[in-house]
């Protein structure tokens, strides 16, 4: 399975949105349910681009935001197979452009005193925060749409990324999209 929780490698080139699709899957909050989802994706040859899981306001359920790669399988088949899992309560498709999508990145960047001002200026423009400053490095965080995170990650390449973690995207439907 080409499953990635966020991205820890070098910045990816942005790929057109139509290849990826965001599904919000409400599942029963029981042990083993995430394994069932992951096993289904593996068994059917569906690729996951990113995956984020957390309990909802109702403790019986968890909300899974999964970005699927439509080159591996048609969206309809992915949804129908997911729906067959007994622990899957609801699946909502978030159309590209009709949802607010966010991702959090925390990153440690090589930046000695001579490059810090420049880095902080770029970080400010992107809306990020400085979390910690060391002798030769800074730890930063940035929240934003995944495409902005991609861009900023690429920009950080010139400084040297020491360690990086992205959460994978979470999403909510636009206000006017909610029933």
């Amino acid at each position: 399975m080409n499953e990635q929780q966020g991205s820890s490698g070098p910045a990816k080139h942005h790929v057109p949105d139509y290849r990826y699709h965001t599904l919000v899957v409400t599942v029963e909050n029981k042990s083993g349910v995430l394994a069932r989802l992951a096993a289904l994706f593996s068994r059917r040859g569906f690729n996951i681009e990113s995956l984020a899981v957390a309990p909802t306001d109702d403790e019986r359920f968890s909300r899974v935001t999964v970005v699927v790669d439509l080159e591996s399988a048609p969206l309809e088949q992915i949804i129908k197979q997911l729906d067959k899992l007994v622990n899957v309560v609801n699946i909502r498709e978030l159309h590209p452009g009709h949802a607010v999508e966010r991702e959090l990145m925390i990153v440690t960047v090589a930046a000695g005193p001579d490059r810090r001002d420049e880095l902080v200026e770029q970080l400010d423009r992107a809306g990020g925060k400085v979390l910690s400053v060391g002798a030769d490095a800074m730890m930063l965080s940035l929240v934003g749409p995944p495409i902005r995170i991609d861009e900023f990650e690429e920009l950080l390449g010139q400084y040297g990324i020491i360690e990086l973690q992205r959460t994978g995207r979470v999403a909510l439907a636009n206000l006017d999209e909610n029933d």
Partner: peptide, 8 residues
């Protein structure tokens, strides 16, 4: 009766 078979 299995939606996933329709169009699979």
């Amino acid at each position: 009766i299995d939606a996933a078979e329709l169009g699979k």
